[in-house]
Design a protein around this nucleic acid. Structure first.
Lengths: 356, 356
DNA sequence: CTGTTAGCGCGTTCAT
DNA sequence: ATGAACGCGCTAACAG
């Protein structure tokens, strides 16, 4: 009669065969000579276990190298919680979003919650497909940066008990908490700063124009100009720029204009960088003013330093996570909008005066 | 008799009550008037389902807003696969690692695999605790940046069938695939470049000295100097720098030395940035040469541009993911070391000659 | 082509 | 304080 795989045990009783089945609570129970339920109690730190039983179960767990299966656990558990949350961002490789991710991670891990992070690249279909994939994983909660103009596709899921929090942009068609920043007033402040320095021809460079954030930042730009009686020149407004390269090209085109802008306001960090590249190539980084929305690493080390309307992505991520975990802990108060303020950081590029 | 929650249905038959139980395959089966197994076949796209049955099941799924539960699925499934992988990095907020993460994501999502990403901050205990947490989630595979000097804590898990791939640093005590870069020869190339420019007093700034990568990069530094008959001055070798600020301080101290270095070699991207800050504060960025290991965004836009020994974190992430998914698809060939080459990128800071 | 039965690993419910 | 039975949502192995 051939030996069974379970018979091949090493010094500590750990299985050695390559196809080793993972030990289960039953295996632990058998080895400790107790019932399955007692093992469950020990694993879940339920009170009311005798010290001797606890000790023998602990030993069996150690000897077998047992690791509980959270999937099976959450399947059976009354509240159905999986102790996982989904984080649906635009692009995790963008420092803005990796800061958000890190902040969420820092609140999640101490609670034993793990994070599925995915990028939708501002593609509305990806937002929906990835949200579905996360739902399929039964995440307890979902933090997302809306890409669609409408998030009602998540309504049924919220009904079913999944907590949802939006970051950076507020959602529509969904009664969820939102963590946003002062897009409009922040942009207005940045543009007003350029006006104060003396500029009148200020270009606006924005990302996908359907995005609410883009619209709000544009509104801030428009308000600032109008407040100061400056007419908006449509030729100085360029949107739907979806990459650094696109911004670079747009700025190059602007500068070739017969009456070029004397200052640029870029509504997103990648576009700011594209604008800097274009200015550099022409040696104009010291003569054309620039204010960008959203800070980025090393902005202070460039020459000139880049003046920005800084968001605080770490604070946004932290706030979103706090709100989400509050919901998961039973907070049923009405959904709110949480505002994380921006602040203008003067570093040089925004203080360049117009020529003449 | 009170109405049951299930009785409250909206226009499409979707549950409206707030405690709405999520529809299961049984609910779909009942509504479509077929067996549970038929629903399973449709959901898993198994062949051999009549068009009419497929259609009615599809409709029921749509009407109920059914989403399969992968947790339950993988629990029952023969291979036990969860379609999730773990990514255990040093710090997801560091652009080097977020590039790795993005590359892994780009290969995972098309396969229906989701990624748990976590940061261990080079803390050995965190590496172990987080690996355990991931194992508890039954990830099919694990990509990790080793923080410990030994990874044997994962041996039992590999035995049990979890695929493991190490990135950036090779593992010890574990027979796993590794994706590494040319730390030693790349560093030697960077230092040799400084020597070629005429430098003799070249400082080495490194992170935690116990890290194999730090040691290998130091070895490259030493080899390059020795090859050119330059004696190593221990006062110019500073390690265990764990942050931008630490590097900043170290460089400040070096420059206060009576016979300061004329060039710096920084063995990690955060340290490179710290060094730049220190040089800037003294207005020395144009007179002290600098070569950094690992590229970073905007390195080309600084003045002078930062010469680096560039790694390709996207390639590393892609390679690691390819190897991992190969293992998950049944590749049982012996574990290998995969090398992603570095290359020297001259941008100005490394071409500054010594004074005189 | 379709359905029936069994049970994955675990927490709940209720008995002892 | 401990345990037996049951079933969470789903797929595997078989039967028809």
């Amino acid at each position: 009669m051939p030996a069974f795989a379970e018979d091949h045990v090493g010094p500590l009783g750990s299985p050695i065969s390559s196809g080793a089945r993972r030990p289960t609570m039953r295996d632990v129970a058998k080895r400790a000579g107790v019932s399955l339920k007692s093992v469950s109690r020990v694993v879940n730190k339920e009170p009311g276990v005798s010290p001797s039983l606890l000790e023998s179960v602990r030993r069996a767990i150690e000897e077998l190298g047992f690791h509980p299966n959270v999937g099976a656990s959450s399947l059976r558990r009354a509240d159905g919680k999986t102790a996982t949350v989904g984080l649906l961002l635009e692009d995790i490789a963008n420092p803005h979003f990796s800061a958000v991710q890190r902040a969420v991670e820092d609140l999640a891990l101490p609670r034993g919650i793990m994070v599925f992070a995915v990028s939708h690249d501002s593609d509305p279909r990806r937002e929906i497909a990835l949200a579905r994939a996360l739902i399929t994983r039964r995440v307890d909660g979902l933090i997302l940066v809306p890409a669609n103009e409408d998030q009602s596709h998540l309504a049924a899921e919220m009904q079913a008990g999944t907590a949802v929090v939006c970051v950076d942009r507020r959602c529509t068609g969904l009664d969820a908490d939102c963590v946003v920043t002062t897009d409009e007033t922040g942009s207005a402040e940045g543009v007003r700063h350029l006006i104060d320095v003396g500029h009148r021809r200020i270009a606006f460079l924005g990302p996908r124009s359907v995005l609410p954030t883009c619209r709000q930042r544009y509104r801030g730009y428009r308000n600032a100009l109008e407040t100061h009686g400056i007419r908006i020149d449509p030729e100085l407004v360029l949107v739907d720029l979806n990459s650094t390269a696109a911004a670079d090209g747009a700025v190059s085109a602007l500068l070739a204009h017969p009456c070029p802008p004397t200052a640029l306001f870029t509504a997103q960090n990648l576009l700011t960088i594209g604008a800097i590249r274009a200015l550099r190539r022409r040696g104009l980084e010291g003569s054309v003013a620039l204010v960008g929305f959203d800070d980025f690493p090393l902005a202070d080390l460039l020459s000139p330093g880049v003046t920005v309307v800084a968001q605080d992505p770490t604070a946004s991520g932290r706030t979103a996570a706090e709100v989400l975990f509050g919901r998961l802990s039973g907070d049923t108060s009405p959904a709110r909008v949480h505002v994380v303020p921006t602040n203008l950081v003067r570093r040089g590029s925004g203080e360049i005066p117009p020529p003449g």
